[in-house]
Amino acid sequence: MYKYVAKYFLLERVYRFCNFFANKALLIGLFGFFIMSYICLIILPSDSVQSEVYRILFVHVPSAIMSELIYLFLAVNGFIYLVWRTKISAIFLNSAISIGLIFTALVLITGSIWGKPTWGTYWVWDARITSTFILLIQYVCLLALKTSFTTRQIADQIISILSIIGAINIPIIKFSVNWWNTLHQGPSITTSGSSIDGEMLYALPLMLIAFMFISLSIFLRNIQFEILLRAPSKKEIWRDHG
């Protein structure tokens, strides 16, 4: 299987793919984001309890989902790198950290802004908020460790191990509102349905997709950067995009 997959992940090939799609993904993502912002801010009806404030949900929830998905992506790539020593998964791992950090910061900031008018406070140390804050620290650690070693391979191994171990936090974040008494409300969307009215709900996955495209474009550019860092001797890459 390795043989068949490997040829798609030759670094030059990946580099060219990234170069081809990065700007397109950004355009699609920004276009979607602006359309969805208009829909979320103006077209959607206001909420019966929170009136207009609830609209921040459409940034808060997609960024929360992104921050957790990206962490799982890190852990999977870390695992693949440790077992199979595939260069590309180390590159994926390095490229995704900063994006995860942005979304985790975004979820904490929007949560704070949302918390003040609804709960009456910017910050409480409840289980959901604290575990998300720990996720932020994990991302910061990964980002710091990534550049802390003179040998790139050692750095890759260390952040692989750390990202795998840190993945334990993801189910804790997910279930924190069920396991403990928290100020944060329980999940709106569960396997038994959604407690967000259908008239508002459709905007959520669309916004998530827009976020995914924007982060995909940053991700692709980061991959290019990492490839150039790792393979400076590849003449043709430099010639094409020097």
Partner: peptide, 16 residues
């Protein structure tokens, strides 16, 4: 100090 806890239900004003 009093903090309000809101639930996970969101619905439009006119439906309510």
């Amino acid at each position: 100090e009093i903090l309000a806890k809101h639930d996970e239900n969101y619905m439009p004003v006119k439906l309510e």
